[in-house]
Design a protein around this nucleic acid. Structure first.
Length: 271
DNA sequence: AAAGCGCCCTGAAGGC
DNA sequence: TGCCTTCAGGGCGCTT
């Protein structure tokens, strides 16, 4: 479900409705998702939500008792608003009871997870501590990427999906960014030229920025509905278009498994 | 030690 | 109709 643009869209939606809202309690409907859920999260009550942040694809909810809840939506995680009187749906695993509404964490596949700790300790969380720069900050520039790719023999597509290199580039936008940059996804990361590296930084930022903007319109009600609304309305240039003509040169788009993930590219435009 | 692969889990879609 | 296989937007952890 979520790539960075969707997580950011969710964050904005939550912020709009829940910033400064009072949490009256939390219900854990199972003790674990991908990992055990800290029981302390289930005991959280009578606190105010003072900030909603995002780091990579992680959502952070800061409360005024100096504690922070961290959530990752995995592949199928969704956050939906619901009336407290409405019975939980199948796979609604965590219920956040706010004064005006419930916020429900639904995740069929349970690849997602939730953590809870002191806010000041959150940067030391084992998931956050190892992350590379955010793609939409100045820290992610061509000089940085060139250094990061140096000597790497793995495919460039795999490398830009490595969260230690840059966060938030998921499977769809990896293919889309490489297409726009004219770089073959199988290319060894360390063999990109400097102009190619600079182009890739630019297209990653472009693709994610455009997707956030599109997500912001087509997924405006994302957190309030079934989560899939409008997502596929995005017009991908290569993702899911294998066999269809390249929009630039009409060569059929190819699909290839790279790093166990489906990858789409134009064999003519991407070198 | 970088790189590659198996695996966690459910549900939707397609083939037969 | 139903049964089976394949695939899905993520990322950890083990092996080489």
């Amino acid at each position: 479900m979520p790539e960075l643009p969707e997580v950011e869209t969710v964050r904005r939606g939550l912020e709009k409705t829940l910033l400064n809202a009072r949490l009256t309690g939390v219900t854990l409907r199972r003790p674990d998702l991908r990992y055990p859920i800290p029981p302390a999260l289930g005991q959280l009550a009578n606190v105010r939500l003072i900030a909603l942040r995002r780091r990579a694809k992680y959502l952070l909810m800061d409360f005024d008792n100096s504690h922070t809840a961290l959530m990752h939506l995995g592949m199928s995680g969704r956050l939906t608003f619901a009336d407290a009187a409405t019975p939980p749906a199948k796979h609604d695993h965590i219920l956040f009871h706010f004064e005006e509404t419930d916020l429900r964490f639904n995740d069929a596949r349970r690849f997602g997870f939730a953590d809870f700790c002191l806010s000041e300790a959150i940067s030391h969380n084992r998931h956050l501590a190892v992350l590379g720069p955010e793609p939409l900050t100045d820290a992610f520039d061509s000089e940085y990427l060139h250094t990061s790719l140096s000597g790497k023999k793995s495919a460039i597509k795999t490398t830009i999906m490595d969260n230690a290199v840059v966060v938030g580039v998921g499977n769809i936008y990896a293919s889309e960014s490489l297409f726009r940059a004219g770089i073959a996804p199988t290319r060894a990361a360390g063999r990109l030229t400097r102009p190619q590296t600079a182009a890739l930084v630019t297209t990653i930022k472009q693709v994610l920025t455009e997707a956030i903007a599109a997500g912001g319109s087509s997924l405006r009600d994302y957190v309030q509905t079934d989560g899939s609304l409008g997502y596929f309305a995005h017009s991908f240039k290569v993702y899911g278009r294998d066999g269809h003509p390249c929009l630039t040169c009409a060569t059929p788009i190819r699909k290839k498994i790279i790093g166990q993930r489906s990858t789409f590219y134009c064999p003519n435009c991407q070198k």
